[in-house]
Design a protein around this nucleic acid. Structure first.
Lengths: 370, 370
DNA sequence: GCTTGTACTTGAAACGCATCAAAGGGGCCG
DNA sequence: CGGCCCCTTTGATGCGTTTCAAGTACAAGC
């Protein structure tokens, strides 16, 4: 049961070590008969190249690492999916690690990947990537996903503030008079969404706005609680438009309202803010703003490729990917899964060597989304 | 920007190579001052151990590989989640690869993992694992998940036939007279579910049963189509109980029925068959049979550990994990996520050196589930 | 028959680290 | 002061590859 190594194959095939190696890596250099003989021997012996040795001897392998905060969040999955397809397109493997909402683990896997001679690494960080500047200085290309900060480095993110604006304008278009925003803005992304909502509503002082904290984890149960509370209000204090900062929050709110006999969207409209078609299997349609996770993953790999191919790439590059508002049902969600290759959202790119400040002032044409 | 290696650290810290290595792997062997000095130097230089070299020199690392057919299927995520937690508990890392429904890729990643000196590898295979007996013979522990075949090897699977029985008994308990099963039994798992349903209904000849193919991919859209068709039937030809072989199918059926003005569950009851709380964010509750993905992942890692720790383990071990029927809503689903550590479903284990035939005849006490 | 060139093949030298037998440095006892 | 033992540190060795300069064999051209 001892592992078969390259020297075993060489001896068995009656050729030298280097020839077997060539058969694996530069088959065009070998005479067809030799190649055939070696391949047969490899199969007969069940030889499997030791990746560690290959990497050690040959430098980086064609594979990327992706560290995600959780796997059960549809948005992360869309990122993984986009990154996967783009990586395969360039002939790279993609390995995924689950940090399980634990920043120690996140750091651990990040170091692991960087130490494995991965060609590049991507993270969807839980906190700001100021978090460990040491890693950014490593000689391994790294791209931060779904986050947008002023540190030098490579980032691909959705424009969360724009998402807030989109939702707000949606509410305005629907003639809302009283909006309730549900959720705890614990993460930067959510904070920006709230900011966007406020900015958009600044022009409409007649619309009343209220923000309700939903508990630490923004779960559906939290949403259900808030929904119940809203339902209990006298009709004239009840909002006509509820925004869940997260789709599951919105979903919980809907459940509660419906349970209490309040018509959705008849009496109260509810919108979400995650746009998570992969996870949305609800029978009731939900209008939501969809940050393009798939596209973020794709762009992330492209940035990695760019760093690999250019010897002296820009030190900093920020990409913002636009979002779209849409109504998803289980049916459209399923279609999306098959259609996602076609998605080509509006992109806004900027590259510079030290222009972190520039990238913060961005005007996105919202008209196209509504 | 050249990579810092262990010898750089050693020189800089004024100690020898082996000492730095010890600081990394056997810190207890070092004098505290030395350890501190080395750690400081490591941080100052930004040294990151080369995993390839470590693995090459030191043999297998403490990490497992998991190959999944898709990431956007909640069931696979539950597996990943269970495997992750169990692996971490034993101090192992878990790396995940997405085979993207492509058996070439599945094979590719499997070989990749085996070649990387992983301590063990798990697959949720797309086809039968007869598929590549060569890999099973490799000197790397391997466990097949969610599949149950007669080949020697290690398997952990849900009892899909029992799932069918559970659903059928649920229908009987609800007084169903006419059951429609929706879905294409393209995979072994689905076939077994249908078989279980038929077996359970064999005792009730008065109940009419009908199986409707839903198209190749069993999508929500397919379910919607079938739902529409069911709704269009005259009331007396309409079933009073619909089983979706998949949760998304059931979801599509519900959408269609509701759209056409048929009350669910008033006029027609609908049940699913995936039990996918992680993905279920619908506002309408769905009753479903939940194959314990989390538990399968957990058991998979345990089998891996067993193979690693025992020098001469059983050559074959099949584990079947029971399922539970339950009603999930977005709210309970979210709770499940936090509660999954506690799930301890009914287990049925068998171990033997050549008893592949035994394992096929299994009686599970269904009473406990209903 | 000798030279030059072409097409393959060879094997030794890294790659960066873990390991382990051996050496070093005290402290303690006789 | 010598001998012992224990705790800590050393550095040569090998892990399984890739790479590449050097080698071989053979054919064509003179």
């Amino acid at each position: 049961m001892a592992k078969v190594k390259i020297s075993d194959v060489a001896r068995e095939a009656g050729v030298s070590l280097g020839t077997v190696s060539n058969a694996l890596n530069h088959p065009e250099k070998l005479r067809p008969e030799t190649l055939k003989l070696i391949n047969e021997t490899i199969n007969r012996l069940g030889y499997l190249p030791n990746q560690s040795a290959r990497q050690l001897a040959g430098g980086a392998t064609k594979s990327f690492g992706l560290v995600l905060p959780r796997l059960d969040h549809g948005f992360s999955l869309q990122i993984a999916s986009g990154a996967h397809n783009e990586a395969r397109k360039h002939g790279y493997d993609l390995l995924i690690a689950n940090a399980d909402n634990d920043d120690i683990l996140e750091d651990h896997y990040l170091r692991y990947f960087m130490g494995t001679q991965m060609s590049g690494v991507m993270v969807q960080p839980m906190a700001s990537p100021d978090w460990h500047p040491a890693l950014t200085k490593m000689p391994v290309p790294i791209v931060h996903l779904d986050i947008h900060c002023s540190e030098p480095g490579y980032y691909v993110a959705a424009d969360n503030e724009a998402q807030g604006r989109i939702i707000a304008e949606l509410a305005i278009a629907r003639g809302a008079h009283h909006i309730v925003v549900v959720g705890r803005a614990a993460f930067m992304q959510l904070t920006l969404r709230v900011l966007g909502i406020h900015k958009a509503l600044a022009l409409h002082p007649d619309i009343k706005i209220e923000v309700i904290d939903a508990g630490e984890w923004n779960t559906a149960a939290d949403g259900y609680g808030i929904g119940t509370q809203i339902a209990a209000r006298p009709a004239d204090e009840r909002p006509d438009f509820v925004v869940g900062l997260t789709d599951v929050l919105a979903s919980g709110v809907i459940s509660a309202l419906v349970d209490k006999g309040i018509a959705v969207p008849g009496q109260v409209r509810v919108a979400g803010c995650d746009g998570n078609p992969l996870a949305w299997s609800g029978s009731v349609p939900l209008t939501t703003v969809a940050p393009p996770g798939y596209e973020i993953g794709r762009k992330g790999v492209q940035l990695l490729m760019e760093q690999i191919e250019n010897k002296a790439p820009a030190k900093t590059k920020h990409i913002r990917v636009g979002s779209t508002a849409r109504t998803v049902t289980a049916v459209t969600a399923a279609e999306d899964i098959n259609r996602q290759e076609l998605v080509r959202p509006f992109l806004l790119e900027r590259a510079s060597t030290q222009a972190s400040s520039q990238t913060d002032a961005t005007a996105i044409n919202l008209g196209a989304y509504l």
